[in-house]
Design a protein around this nucleic acid. Structure first.
Lengths: 217, 217
DNA sequence: GCAACATGGATAGTGTAACTCTCTAATAGT
DNA sequence: ACTATTAGAGAGTTACACTATCCATGTTGC
């Protein structure tokens, strides 16, 4: 197919497709002449993945490029690749590191204690450690200690969510499919779970606090 | 205190404080002369909250302004206020609406069926509905049907997370404190839970897929 | 065969968000 | 007196994700 059809089928403007190609998110089409190229289903699949990661998964373009580069590396050990993918996604979805005052230091200690308590195996440099430490520090700074104190209960549920994720990943046939599944789980799956939590929260509020269903103003 | 001290104690640059004042996130100080103002602890608390919502909760400045305006409205019914807060936060954290093709329409149907199955009370226009529908549609477009098919299991856990959130909110003394707690839970608490999920995922991968702890390259 | 439209590739421009800088006149502290 | 600081307003900056314009070539409908 030509670029116009690729654009129509993916609902992505031609200019944007060209932009993604420049940025290395989408391989060039097969040139049939100096200014004509042909695209196939693989381009369409890739484009759909890119849009899903950017729009639904809210990943920056630069991160998507990194992730796709990993996926395309067939000579990399899949287990190593999986670690890279997890780390890249979490690093991108964490904010930029705030400054480390004593509140964050205390949060870091809390995180270490939690990991110890639950016997989790987590790399020392995992971005999620810092994200969690900063979230705890922020909660304690603004009067949300009661929330921070329930971290063990939340952790127990997070573990069960991760167990579902893992079961999914393992059910996939090849190591490559497992890595791909882990990527989807950590980006789109995360968005999905967050939305489910919002719905459940709204239900809980409506039910218990008698707000009624929040009205559209 | 003067603005320099406010800046030092909050670790927010003076120029940024002035920007937040212009944007209506922070009330002006008490003017003691045409070009001198005094700030107190309430300003510091507010500033800390603003930074936490922006940096840790990843909310846009415009959304924070909206939320603070609700919190400051003392004459608004707290239950209504709570609904407004939930809706405002979820709307901000959802992406901008993508176009509604037939995949999203199918996702919407799935979401409605799920809400029905679980007996959830959710307003028809809740932003989370669309977010979830788009996440499902995206998953199915990129080969993540297996993930989308587990939505009921995820929903059951989301319900339990929401139950913890609710218990917290109810344990607060006044209606105003409850609304404030709900805000913290839905922003900072969400960041906290997501980070916990990442840690649990890394543990699960390390344990079951034998990746070893992912190394820092 | 040829006019109208489409394409690849390069470059430049746009819009938004969140700051950050500069300036002025007027204090505050010493 | 003199240096540093401040309020308030406006302009400038940076990062990001597109979006638009060109031009030389191709393709296509008639």
């Amino acid at each position: 197919m030509r670029i116009a059809e690729l654009s129509r089928r993916s609902a992505v403007p031609v200019a944007t497709i060209k932009y993604y190609q420049r940025e290395g998110l989408l391989p060039p089409g097969e040139l049939t002449s100096p200014n004509q190229a042909r695209y196939d289903e693989r381009h369409l699949d890739r484009l759909r993945l890119v849009r899903a990661l950017i729009e639904v998964g809210r990943l920056p373009v630069a991160t998507v490029r990194e992730l796709l580069a990993f996926l395309d590396q067939s000579e990399m050990n899949p287990h190593y690749k999986l670690g890279k993918v997890l780390r890249t996604v979490t690093a991108a979805r964490s904010g930029s590191p705030g400054e480390a005052d004593e509140a964050v230091a205390a949060g870091t200690k809390e995180v270490e204690a939690l990991i110890e308590r639950r016997g989790w195996q987590v790399a020392p440099g995992a971005p999620a450690r810092r994200t969690l430490a900063e979230a705890l520090a922020a909660l304690r700074r603004v009067g949300g200690d009661d929330i921070a104190d329930l971290i063990d209960e939340y952790a127990a549920l997070a573990e069960r969510v991760a167990a579902i994720d893992l079961r999914l990943v393992r059910s996939r046939a090849t190591p490559e499919a497992m890595v791909y599944g882990a990527l989807l789980g950590e980006t789109l799956g995360d968005t999905m779970f967050t939305a489910l939590r919002w719905l459940a929260q709204e239900d809980a509020s409506a039910r218990a606090l008698d707000t009624g269903a929040p009205r559209v103003p």
